[in-house]
Design a protein around this nucleic acid. Structure first.
Length: 463
RNA sequence: GGCGCCAUAGCCAAGUGGUAAGGCGAAGGUCUGCAAAAUCUUUAUUCCCCAGUUCAAAUCUGGGUGGCGCCUCCA
């Protein structure tokens, strides 16, 4: 599999450090609010990365943190009149509700920053001992000048970064680019004891500490939004490598941004949507489909029209499954030549899907392969393909869909009560008693199901 | 000022040297008691513009134009 590595700015063949195992760290949410559609993109696309690597047979250790202590957390907790801990607890719960609805798998570990303060302090001590960090007042800073590789990830040298740096009149710093590892305690903020007195950790530090703790000093893949490349990931690298003396990350992956009606999402102009809000209007599987219909590194525009397009596209895939079901249900004979052709097409689907995914997670292309197969399914005539082959085809489609986390609504059982009404309606239709059949349809619909009359009978779906 | 990305039909979007995938929409057809749905066919002589390299360019090179991101918290 090839992965575009942000560090080298090219696609590289992915080779894990340990055979058969992949360690991934993905930057998680700051849990001060519901997460929005922009936050959702990395969660979804890197969930697909994880699913695909597992599909390839790797054991994947996927760590995604919760940032539950920072300025935004403190501000929001104060506004709500609750503790930072309570705020974190609440929005971690809310995170899982939305993530589950989006089909995002639970990470193998979801560490919370506040539960790893000790690990962070140890890391700072190491950095100070290595001469990479210094105490200034009640704060501790990382000294970028003492880390020769600073700027390596983002592709800029120190001078350029300094000249571009916006005003930072923090007299505690030796260099404007130095960043805080430990913040001295302020009134009204939570604090922890440390060798430098009460205080709290800097944001960049937590990811380094937790990544090293759970995945080791060198990890395979680290991912996150494009905007985190600098300074967050640059700083993480600097801290980690200065502390361990080892390369921190082999492959860096960054997803592109989501714009709202072609404008950058910003809270001030109010053009952002939380997943929770969208869940009231859309099936979140559609949102997931929407994200996967384009490449994860491309910028992606959100608009209701595009969601509708994604919805229709997803529907076509569902229809192909329904069509397979109809063919399976009515299969009594087959033609061996056509059956073989069909098998070949299924294999071709698997190959194309894999080729696309191997090419830096080209989900758009992978889905196109599924559409191609869908088209083929619709062209199949009854009783030309064997039942087993059809079932294999359906399982293959579900298998691939599982990698993407779509087509999650699988066959559901129809309650007996509904089945009775359906039988009665079918009878009425055969007797051409359309008054009764329409009445029964209304009744069934009022119970939360929709009916479509097809050649082969009534198709029922839960609304 | 520094670093980087992008430009393909009405909309979205793959394709990075071999003659334009796919989806949505639209138009027309099929199916149909009604309704709804579904499905089929058609829908870019051409890939922002100009030059160059090549037997061959959407793809490579140079130069324009237009849009965007990062350099500050940010997915």
């Amino acid at each position: 599999m090839k992965i575009y590595n942000s560090k080298t700015r090219q696609k590289e063949e992915f080779i894990p450090i340990n055979n058969g195992v992949v360690n991934i760290y993905s930057c998680g949410p700051t849990v001060y609010n519901y997460f929005h559609i922009g936050n959702a993109r990395p969660f979804i696309v890197f969930d697909v990365l994880r699913r695909y690597l597992e599909k390839l047979g790797y054991k994947v250790n996927f760590v995604q943190n919760f940032t539950d202590i920072d300025d935004k957390m403190i501000k929001r907790a104060n506004e709500e009149g609750i503790s930072v801990k309570e705020l974190g607890d609440r929005f971690i719960n809310e995170y899982f509700i939305d993530a589950d609805a989006l089909g995002i798998m639970r990470a193998t570990k979801h560490p919370r920053a506040t539960e790893h303060i000790g690990d962070m302090i140890k890391l700072i001590v190491k950095l100070i001992n290595n001469g990479a960090a210094y105490q200034s007042g009640n704060d501790v800073y990382f000294s970028v000048k003492d880390f020769p590789n600073y700027g390596c990830l983002c592709g800029q040298n120190l001078d350029d970064l300094e000249s571009g740096a916006r005003i930072d009149i923090d007299s505690n710093k030796r260099n404007p680019l130095d960043f805080v590892l430990w913040k001295g305690h302020k009134e009204g903020e939570p604090g922890w004891n440390s060798p430098w007195g009460m205080g709290r950790p800097g944001w960049h530090l937590e990811c380094s500490a937790m990544a090293i703790k759970y995945l080791g000093e060198t990890i395979d893949i680290h991912c996150g939004g494009k905007d985190l490349l600098f300074p967050h990931h640059e700083n993480e690298t600097a801290q980690s490598e200065a502390a361990t003396g080892k390369p921190f990350v082999h492959y860096w992956m960054h997803n592109g941004f989501i714009n709202i009606n072609n404008e950058k999402m910003s809270k001030s102009s109010g053009n952002f949507f939380t997943i929770r809000d969208l869940s009231k209007k859309y099936d979140l599987e559609v949102i997931r489909m929407f994200m996967l219909l384009s490449h994860y590194r491309s910028p992606l525009n959100y608009s209701p029209e595009l969601i509708d397009q994604a919805s229709s596209s997803l529907n076509r895939l569902y229809n192909s499954i329904s069509q397979l079901n109809i063919l399976i249900d009515n299969s009594t004979s087959f033609d061996s030549e056509m059956d073989n052709n069909f098998k070949t097409v299924v294999e071709k689907l698997k190959d194309s899907f894999k080729d696309s995914m191997d090419d830096d997670l080209n989900t758009a292309d992978a889905i196109a392969a599924m559409f191609d197969f869908a088209k083929y399914v619709f062209s199949v005539k009854e009783n030309t393909i064997s039942r087993n082959t059809l079932i294999y085809a359906k399982e293959t489609m579900y298998d691939l869909a599982d990698v993407l986390g779509i087509l999650r609504k699988r066959e559901e059982s129809i309650p007996d009560q509904i089945q009775d009404l359906l039988d009665k309606r079918q009878e009425a239709r055969l007797n051409k008693d359309f008054k009764l059949s329409d009445k029964l349809r209304n009744e069934i619909e009022s119970l939360g199901f929709t009916i479509e009359d097809t050649k082969l009978g009534q198709k029922v779906k839960r609304k």
